[in-house]
Write a protein that binds this DNA or RNA. Structure first.
Lengths: 119, 119
DNA sequence: CGTTTACATAGATATAGGTCTATATTGTAG
DNA sequence: CTACAATATAGACCTATATCTATGTAAACG
């Protein structure tokens, strides 16, 4: 997995209002008007935020009459946790062991550590 | 926990370059010049990104001679996972059950679900 | 002491993003 | 068909931010 999708999720989540929307939806589906009641911003602003969340694969929309029902995408939770674990793990799955990685033998800081490290 | 610190982490992580820096550091400490080798941007830009990561509590810096050694903050991993679980959990720890939450009995969409739901 | 190396800071610039008002679209009900 | 209600789209505006060049600072070295 490259981090493209994970970054997309992070960007969508990195807004207090959208994070609150996700939190609301983690308790179950809601329509736009119900979500809007929890915020001070305008309806078009909510529409914008919901589109961001959909584009990131975090939320799905299901139209029912006049109402848009928003639901947390089932795969989101698993995918986000997976991306997080992949990022934070220091094992061989770590991306930095790929072709774009540090050459630990020629690393400058490694040389310094050998000659100057005191602790 | 309010989400303030979690949002700060998310904002710092929601950049492909900073995400790659975190990934690099998940394999161990590195000095600025070693990190810089993996990127095309300038040294001041890296300095900026490292400051963002420090302000978010993700990275710590330790000066050793001329070199700045950057390390993933020990608490970051745990705190981020904790914030993620708190966000995605649909149990009573969910923030939306606080005073700023949905009144599920008077929810408009709930009424609609009862009268119009087919599936 | 002067030079080089590693990094930080200052300031400029350009793009991204969050918000608004105004308006369009779509569905429901009379 | 008309009116209203729920949501989406368009476009403007402003702030945040990612980047750069130029310069400052601090440590090591001859």
């Amino acid at each position: 997995m490259d981090y493209q999708n994970y970054v997309l999720m992070l960007k969508a989540m990195a807004d207090p209002n959208r994070l609150k929307i996700i939190d609301l939806l983690s308790c179950g589906s809601l329509c736009a008007c119900d979500i809007l009641e929890h915020f001070d911003f305008s309806q078009p602003t909510l529409s914008h935020h919901m589109k961001v969340l959909q584009n990131a694969g975090i939320v799905t929309a299901r139209k029912e009459g006049k109402w848009q029902h928003y639901t947390l995408q089932a795969e989101f939770t698993a995918k986000f946790r997976q991306g997080t674990e992949l990022l934070l793990a220091s094992n061989e799955e770590c991306v930095c062991h790929g072709d774009d990685c540090i050459d630990q033998q020629t690393s400058h800081s490694r040389k310094v550590v050998i000659t100057n490290e005191k602790s």
